[in-house]
Design a protein around this nucleic acid. Structure first.
Lengths: 342, 342
DNA sequence: AACTGCGATGCAAGCGTTTTCACCAGGAGG
DNA sequence: CCTCCTGGTGAAAACGCTTGCATCGCAGTT
């Protein structure tokens, strides 16, 4: 049925040249006479020859693949970034090997045995919550590394200004006259550390409050697991607390959506009884009229991939680029001045 | 900085055995004395040796990776299936190479040059809309293939009974007394063909109507691009048509969500003025009280991965398994009897 | 006319494993 | 005491490319 895939020798024979020339022709290297190249290309086509990436890799030391390390592929932000990454990678012929590292235990195991040792040429780390050990393990690989959503010192990164984004969201609420503003965060799945963006957004929340001369009430901060349910749980927590906020800022839209859900169940009207704002501009945000600070996740993936490709092309280019992409406040119906202002 | 990764020869030298024995020890093959194996394992650990997958692949003909081919990673169903797949794959040590084939043109190019020729040991195709050419190209690869969400004759597949699921959704509406039931579909991105599930769900819709003795009114069928916007557009289309339905069945939840959005903008109350039902049980379905026919996407990914692993283990096991996973109607607030019934 | 330079090509040495086959010691069987 | 296995091990041949180096014409240079 499958009469052995043709090897480079078959192509060489058919084109009447040496395997070396075939290799050079196929990869578009310089020193080949146009006419010779044509002959080789034709021969290869006729045999529908495809070079073995394994052999090529062994010989050249490259793999033609990059690792994409992502914590939760089902979250809007990550799946969208991954889409951006793969779309950019496609052009260049690089493959994307997906490492889905949900739980902290998975991450630990992963970084211990570092399965991508000789498997990839570069790494794209998406907002991974990394301990120092993890980072060191990555470093030890000595592979080009680009991170999205967090900044790993020494390697290029693409992100938004998390603090500013959070501040934008909170300021919006402040501008509307809110004074008791809650914060809903995702609980880190590992006590040792959480998403860098979590921490930064919280900082933004706190600094915005400070700047407005408002106190920080721990009662106004709640957290729940990542995802819709977590947002819902956190909102419920706030609703049953001793201090009722008039508005809440959620770390990201999926938490905000969960909060909206809880509010609905509690019979609290949004935005009359409670304003809600998030970050992301999740695809479904318009559906529930969620006011949010938009970021372009697809673009971030795209840019990150290009950065990595660049690093792969130029062995020791300037490391350390830190691209900060813009965000913008998208006003929808989930925010309004608090009652006493109307 | 990086003093060349150790090779199997280094380990062999350190353990005082031949590379062959090292290879056997490390892979847990039978014919190695326990004591020898220990010695090798220790030596390998001390050198923190990791075998080169490239070389191993070249020599053995295996790659240790499987291709995951997916049309839209950002859709709930696909990202969830991918999560299921990667979670299952992790255990076995196989890597997942992600091929994100959004547009039909990407698919064409992909299947023409078939970049996964020698790159993977097996393929997982997620609901890919495939032309006959595509399928042939896949076949030609002669690799184990498992599909999710559609059935490719001759290879195992995991899916739900699309027709039955659609019928369940429509029957639910019928049982409530609806007689003018609209259908909202996603427009294929390529005129030549669309998702298999699209077609089947439509069949389910039609057969349920027929079974109830209701006519099929083309005016009640609308479609839009995939995703929220498409659902919204299709709903708008229905709302401005000559026949106004009292309920709509959307091919999948994201379209249903889009429909809900359009209804809200049109000021039509759900479910009083219009009932809406979808398929999936999208994470956000509870948020908007969407009645839907639930399917377990994560489980489908999981099962599919295991099926593939099995096929990879047993060279020529029985091909053709066709696992049909259950679905269940989840009643929420988006459906109710039409007005005249109350 | 001898020489230099250079574009085009071939040779052959790797790259780091896996795997077949041969080999060897020692216990079982005759 | 000799043969036959058999578990344990090593030697060496693939596996299918890439690439440094050598080679070879041939058009320019002196």
């Amino acid at each position: 049925m499958s009469p052995d895939r043709p090897s480079i020798l078959d192509v060489a024979a058919r084109a009447g040249v040496s395997p070396a020339t075939v290799s050079r022709s196929l990869r578009g290297l310089a020193k080949v006479a146009p006419q010779t190249r044509r002959r080789v290309l034709d021969a290869a086509a006729e045999l529908s020859y495809v070079a073995s990436p394994q052999a090529a890799g062994l010989a050249s030391g490259r793999t033609g693949a990059v690792a994409v390390v992502v914590p939760f592929i089902t979250r809007w932000f990550f799946s969208t970034v991954v889409a951006g990454v793969t779309d950019a990678l496609r052009e260049s012929g690089y493959d994307a090997v997906l490492y889905h590292l949900g739980g902290a235990d998975h991450r630990d195991r992963f970084f211990e045995q570092m399965p991508l040792a000789r498997k990839v040429d570069g790494i794209l780390s998406l907002s991974m919550p990394l301990t120092e050990d993890h980072t060191l393990a990555l470093r030890a690989l000595d592979l080009p590394l680009v991170s999205v959503g967090s900044h790993i010192p020494g390697s290029p990164s693409v992100r938004i200004d998390e603090v500013a984004a959070a501040r934008t969201a909170v300021n919006h609420l402040l501008n509307q006259g809110h004074e008791r503003i809650g914060f809903i965060a995702g609980t880190p799945d590992d006590p040792r550390f959480g998403f860098v963006s979590s921490e930064l957004r919280r900082q933004g929340y706190e600094s915005a409050l400070s700047a407005a001369g408002l106190p920080q009430d721990p009662e106004l901060v709640a957290s729940g697991p990542h995802g819709l349910d977590g947002g819902s749980a956190a909102m419920t927590q706030l609703l049953t607390g001793s201090v009722l906020p008039t508005a809440v800022f959620a770390e990201y839209d999926e938490l905000a959506l969960g909060a909206l859900w809880a509010l609905r169940r509690a019979g609290m009207h949004v935005p009359d009884a409670m304003s809600v704002v998030g970050i992301d501009n999740h695809e479904l945000a318009p559906l529930v009229e969620l006011t949010t600070v938009a970021q372009d996740a697809h673009e971030q993936g795209n840019v990150a991939a290009h950065l990595l490709l660049q690093a792969l092309g130029a062995p020791d280019a300037d490391i350390g680029a830190d691209l900060v992409l813009p965000t913008r406040l998208v006003l929808r119906g989930s925010t309004a001045p608090p009652r006493q202002f109307r």
